[in-house]
Measured scan of single mutants.
Amino acid sequence: MNLTVNGKPSTVDGAESLNVTELLSALKVAQAEYVTVELNGEVLEREAFDATTVKDGDAVEFLY
């Protein structure tokens, strides 16, 4: 899956889609429990991480 992460191209191997929690784990995001996630310009509530799917071509920003 090809994404733009914090403005840079990134690839997650072996996945066509992941939820936000899985993406944080796959990318080994440090202190993931404290990060705010913006997906395609929309800031996500932490409670929505498990239910929100990240797909090929999406833009993700991790805000600390």
Rank of each mutant, 00 (worst) to 15 (best):
M1S: 00
M1L: 11
M1N: 01
M1T: 05
M1A: 03
M1I: 12
N2E: 07
N2W: 12
N2K: 14
N2I: 11
L3P: 01
L3G: 00
L3H: 02
T4L: 12
T4D: 03
T4N: 06
T4Q: 06
T4G: 04
T4A: 05
T4V: 11
T4W: 12
V5M: 05
V5R: 00
V5L: 07
N6T: 03
N6K: 01
N6S: 05
N6W: 02
N6Q: 05
N6V: 02
G7F: 04
G7M: 04
G7A: 04
G7H: 06
G7Y: 04
G7C: 07
G7I: 03
K8C: 15
K8F: 10
K8R: 12
K8D: 06
K8T: 08
P9M: 09
P9L: 11
P9Y: 08
S10A: 15
S10W: 15
T11P: 06
T11L: 11
T11I: 13
T11R: 15
T11D: 04
T11H: 15
V12L: 11
V12F: 11
V12I: 14
V12S: 02
V12K: 02
V12A: 03
V12H: 05
D13T: 14
D13V: 14
D13R: 14
D13M: 15
D13N: 13
D13E: 13
D13Y: 15
G14S: 09
G14P: 05
G14N: 09
G14Q: 07
G14I: 08
G14D: 06
A15M: 11
A15D: 06
A15Y: 15
A15R: 13
A15W: 13
A15C: 13
E16F: 14
E16C: 13
E16T: 15
E16K: 14
E16I: 14
E16D: 12
E16H: 13
S17Q: 10
S17I: 10
S17W: 11
L18G: 02
L18A: 03
L18H: 03
L18F: 08
L18Y: 07
L18I: 09
N19H: 04
N19E: 02
N19W: 04
N19L: 06
N19Y: 06
N19G: 03
V20D: 00
V20E: 00
T21A: 08
T21V: 07
T21D: 04
T21I: 07
T21M: 08
T21E: 05
T21F: 08
E22C: 09
E22A: 11
E22P: 00
E22S: 08
E22T: 08
E22N: 08
L23K: 00
L23F: 04
L23P: 01
L23A: 02
L23W: 02
L23N: 00
L23T: 03
L23E: 00
L24F: 05
L24P: 00
L24R: 00
S25M: 13
S25R: 14
S25I: 15
S25E: 10
S25D: 10
S25W: 12
S25K: 14
A26I: 14
A26L: 14
A26M: 13
A26V: 13
A26F: 14
L27F: 07
L27Y: 06
L27S: 00
L27V: 03
K28D: 07
K28G: 13
K28F: 07
K28Y: 06
V29Q: 04
V29K: 03
V29I: 13
V29D: 02
A30R: 11
Q31S: 11
Q31N: 14
Q31E: 10
Q31I: 10
Q31H: 15
Q31P: 08
Q31Y: 14
A32H: 10
A32Q: 10
A32G: 08
A32F: 10
A32N: 09
E33L: 10
E33Y: 09
E33G: 09
E33I: 08
E33D: 11
Y34K: 08
Y34N: 09
Y34I: 12
Y34L: 12
Y34P: 04
V35G: 02
V35H: 04
V35D: 04
V35F: 09
T36N: 06
T36F: 09
T36S: 08
V37Y: 03
V37L: 06
V37H: 01
E38L: 15
E38P: 00
E38A: 15
E38T: 15
L39F: 05
L39R: 00
L39T: 00
L39K: 02
N40F: 02
N40L: 01
N40W: 03
N40H: 02
N40M: 02
N40A: 02
G41N: 05
G41F: 04
G41Q: 04
G41S: 04
G41H: 05
G41Y: 04
E42V: 15
E42C: 13
E42R: 14
V43Q: 08
V43W: 07
L44M: 04
L44S: 00
L44T: 05
L44H: 01
E45M: 12
E45C: 13
E45Y: 09
E45R: 13
E45A: 13
R46H: 07
R46W: 07
R46S: 06
R46E: 04
E47A: 13
E47K: 10
E47D: 12
E47P: 06
A48I: 07
A48P: 01
A48N: 12
F49P: 01
F49V: 01
F49T: 00
F49Y: 12
D50P: 07
D50M: 08
D50Y: 07
D50G: 10
D50L: 08
A51E: 10
A51Y: 15
A51G: 10
A51K: 14
A51L: 13
A51S: 14
T52A: 06
T52P: 01
T52N: 03
T53M: 14
T53N: 10
T53L: 14
T53R: 13
T53F: 15
T53Q: 13
V54N: 01
V54A: 02
V54Y: 02
K55N: 08
K55T: 08
K55Y: 11
D56I: 05
D56Y: 05
D56P: 07
G57Y: 03
G57A: 04
G57C: 05
G57N: 05
G57M: 04
G57S: 03
D58R: 00
D58W: 03
D58P: 02
D58T: 03
A59Y: 13
A59R: 14
A59N: 12
A59F: 13
A59P: 02
A59Q: 13
V60R: 01
V60D: 03
V60K: 00
V60E: 02
V60Q: 01
V60S: 03
V60M: 05
V60F: 09
E61Q: 12
E61D: 12
E61K: 15
E61I: 14
E61C: 14
E61Y: 14
F62H: 02
F62W: 09
F62I: 15
F62Y: 07
F62V: 11
L63K: 14
L63N: 11
L63G: 12
L63E: 09
L63D: 07
L63V: 13
Y64M: 08
